[in-house]
């Protein structure tokens, strides 16, 4: 029995240790050059250093590739530098936004904010006074109202596009897409022109709900459509083959099978509208007092709370209050988003 030695797998195309060392030292060199550029030219600050560093790093790697291989490889390295740079630039705002909100927002968070409204306090009072109970309640009521209006419409639209597939499916798909591009302020103006000015003459939570649902319907319809398309056609055929009518197939087989997908659609719809500000400012009035009745009287909301603290305040306390509200809003959005990810990722698609 001869012991055959299995050769260790090698990757001759991979980078060797020496090459990696060379690249690392080149990147250090680029750092030094960037530092020199900061000292000698008009550039300054962290941003200036980053820009100079990127310039020199891509330059030295370009030269290295040109020397080791050829011009094509050098140009290729340039593309990868630029792609990496673009990705970094895309990520900087996300990191910066989240860290800003967390760092500035935690000062505005206190336990009393969930039990008080702003009737007894102004935005410039110390942060401990007042709270955003009214805003949370208002947001929940308005988003809930928008959901009651939007979910049936969104689901029916998605069912029309996936189950009926009528001759109008293409134009309707187009219109849903177009509707998702309606600017939020136009949604507010529309509710003003069709309901508030001619009929109710009053700004209240219901109007806010209706304006928000115009923005919510396309999100729900498109996500629900995608989710229904993921249901294998065999399930529909099985339902019909057992003698079920289309109505029974859809209600008994397709929709239950797509349940978690539809919940995802609802969650994404909520995440889309929960921070909408412009229509809320136009139609829901915006109140500092707790109001449980969407039919009468102005209603507060989280975006309005933040908006008011930011624009009418101007003191440290007002900013802390606004950032605190923003932190709550961001946490809500992140939780909703994570929930949607979890639900849609759980299914083996």
């Amino acid at each position: 029995m001869t012991q055959s030695t299995i050769p260790k797998p090698q990757m001759p195309w991979g980078t060797s240790k020496a090459q990696r060392m060379a690249t690392a030292s080149l990147l250090v060199l680029a750092g030094l050059l960037a530092g020199a550029a900061i000292e000698l030219t008009g550039l300054s600050g962290k941003l200036g250093f980053a820009a100079a560093y990127f310039f020199f790093a891509s330059l030295v790697i370009f030269a290295q590739q040109l020397q080791l291989r050829d011009l094509a490889a050098a140009k290729d390295s340039l593309l990868s530098s630029f792609a990496l740079l673009a990705m970094t630039i895309t990520l900087i705002p996300i990191v910066s936004i989240v860290s800003t909100v967390v760092l500035k927002g935690y000062k505005g968070i206190h336990f009393g904010m969930f039990t008080n409204d702003m009737t007894q306090a102004s935005v410039n009072d110390p942060v401990q006074a007042g709270g955003l109970l009214h805003a949370l309640v208002g947001t929940i009521i308005m988003v809930g109202g928008a959901l009651i209006v939007s979910f049936p419409i969104g689901l029916l639209t998605a069912l029309y596009l996936t189950e009926i597939r009528g001759s109008l499916a293409r134009p309707i798909k187009f219109l849903v897409q177009a509707m998702s591009g309606v600017p939020s302020i136009v949604a507010g103006l529309f509710i003003l022109s069709i309901l508030v000015i001619p009929v109710t003459q009053e700004l209240n939570g219901l109007m806010g709900s209706l304006a928000l649902s115009i923005l919510m319907i396309p999100t729900i319809a498109r996500t629900a459509e995608e989710m229904l398309l993921l249901i294998p056609n065999e399930l529909r055929e099985a339902g019909v083959a057992l003698g079920a009518t289309q109505w029974r197939t859809v209600s008994g087989v397709v929709v239950p099978a797509a349940k978690s997908g539809l919940v995802t659609a609802v969650i994404l719809g909520i995440a889309r509208i929960i921070g909408e500000t412009a229509p809320i400012l136009l139609v829901s009035g915006g109140a500092d007092a707790l109001n449980f009745n969407p039919m009468s009287g102005p209603m507060g909301s989280l975006p309005f709370y933040i908006w008011k603290a930011f624009l009418t305040g101007g003191t440290e306390e007002a900013y802390a209050r606004a950032w605190g509200g923003m932190l709550i809003l961001l946490i809500l959005i992140m939780v909703l988003f994570g929930l949607a990810r979890y639900l849609s990722g759980r299914r083996a698609v």
Partner: peptide, 22 residues
């Protein structure tokens, strides 16, 4: 099925109606 198809088709038209109304 007739009722179902009618209801879904009407629901599907909502986006058209809303855009038109705007």
């Amino acid at each position: 099925d007739q009722i179902f198809r009618a209801v879904v088709t009407i629901g599907g038209m909502t986006s058209l109606v809303i855009l038109g109304l705007i």
